[in-house]
């Protein structure tokens, strides 16, 4: 065997492998584009349909039987308030559960069962949460068909997502960080507080956002617990000019949310309402993007403080 022929073989081998590399790269790109292009086309189509109705009036008007005057004020305020309650309950509960399972819990069959259950819960249809919430929050706890009930329902719904994301984020922290912290005499809580949580916050935030984005688009559980469709007034404001300045009545107010308003409009006979639905869809996507943007900004801020 001469060295020249050997070289030719090796070159052929390299060329073949590079070809496979390129083919896989193209497949990957294709797979990505199917998702991206489909979403872009849908979004663009919706945006173009909704464009004539998008405007200040649309955001500041209540629903109406006249498509040209109908707006989404009660819907987006309702969605925002419900999301506020959802985040208030889901984030601390989810993050604390994740930290406990990952850092404190002993590995035994009980934690195994809990783990399996949490992963399973993430796949339970949302209507099941709605039915549970109807019995528990609406009737048992007597919260009524309120913002609070809806927020708690959606918090339950996204809790598994937040827990799983928190655990994944914590798991990606090298063991050496913990050992270093303990070596310096830190307690377990100090390690969690000053090392584990800050370093995993980026991943946790991503999980929270995925959960919140799911929650804001949910219709079924919110309808189950009795969200309204026509409501032409806002819940009481959370702040007031007289002591005690904070007012929590809004938690118990009736409400509607964006997906319900959209769904109602798509099922109307007049074609003009379809334009409203498209415009509402655009605003809903914008709200999700805004939440995403806030998370990216926060993540960036938090990331800056991490030195490794």
């Amino acid at each position: 065997m001469t060295p020249a022929r050997d070289l030719g073989k090796i070159r052929a081998l390299i060329a073949r492998h590079k070809r496979w590399d390129m083919i896989f790269g193209l497949c990957g790109l294709l797979a990505l584009m199917i998702g991206v292009l489909t979403f872009s086309a849908l979004f663009l189509d919706m945006a173009l349909d909704g464009l004539p109705r998008l405007g200040w009036d649309f955001i500041t008007s209540f629903p109406s039987r006249k498509a040209g005057q109908a707006g989404i004020l009660s819907a987006w305020v309702g969605s925002a308030l419900v999301m506020l309650v959802t985040a208030f309950f889901a984030v601390p509960l989810g993050v604390a559960s994740g930290v406990y399972l990952e850092e404190y819990a002993r590995k035994n069959w009980i934690t195994d069962i809990i783990e399996i259950n949490i992963t399973n819960l993430a796949g339970v249809p949302s209507i099941v949460y709605g039915l549970l919430a109807l019995g528990l929050f609406v009737y048992q706890f007597d919260f009524g068909q309120s913002v609070l009930s809806a927020g708690l329902t959606l918090a339950l719904l996204i809790l598994p997502v937040v827990i799983v994301a928190t655990r994944e984020a914590i798991r990606s922290i090298p063991q050496a960080i913990r050992e270093g912290s303990y070596a310096c005499g830190a307690t377990q809580w100090q390690t969690v507080r000053y090392h584990i949580l800050p370093y995993s916050s980026a991943g946790i935030l991503t999980g929270i956002i995925i959960g919140m984005a799911r929650a804001i688009g949910e219709t079924a559980p919110v309808i189950t617990i009795g969200a309204l469709t026509f409501i032409a007034f806002l819940p009481p404001a959370p702040v007031q000019s007289t002591p005690p300045f904070l007012n929590f009545e809004w938690l118990f107010a009736g409400f509607t949310v964006m997906p319900i308003q959209m769904f109602n409009w798509t099922s109307r006979p007049e074609a003009a309402f379809l334009v409203n639905a498209a415009a509402a869809g655009f605003v809903l996507v914008a709200m999700t993007l805004a939440m995403n943007g806030a998370a990216i900004w926060l993540r960036y801020r938090l990331r800056r403080n991490i030195k490794w």
């Binding site: 007034f233 806002l234 009481p236 404001a237 959370p238 702040v239 007031q240 000019s241 007289t242 300045f245 007012n247 009736g254």
Partner: peptide, 14 residues
Amino acid sequence: AGALAAAAPVHAQI
């Protein structure tokens, strides 16, 4: 805060 509170209507019948 005052503006928000002023915008909130007084208790109404539903």
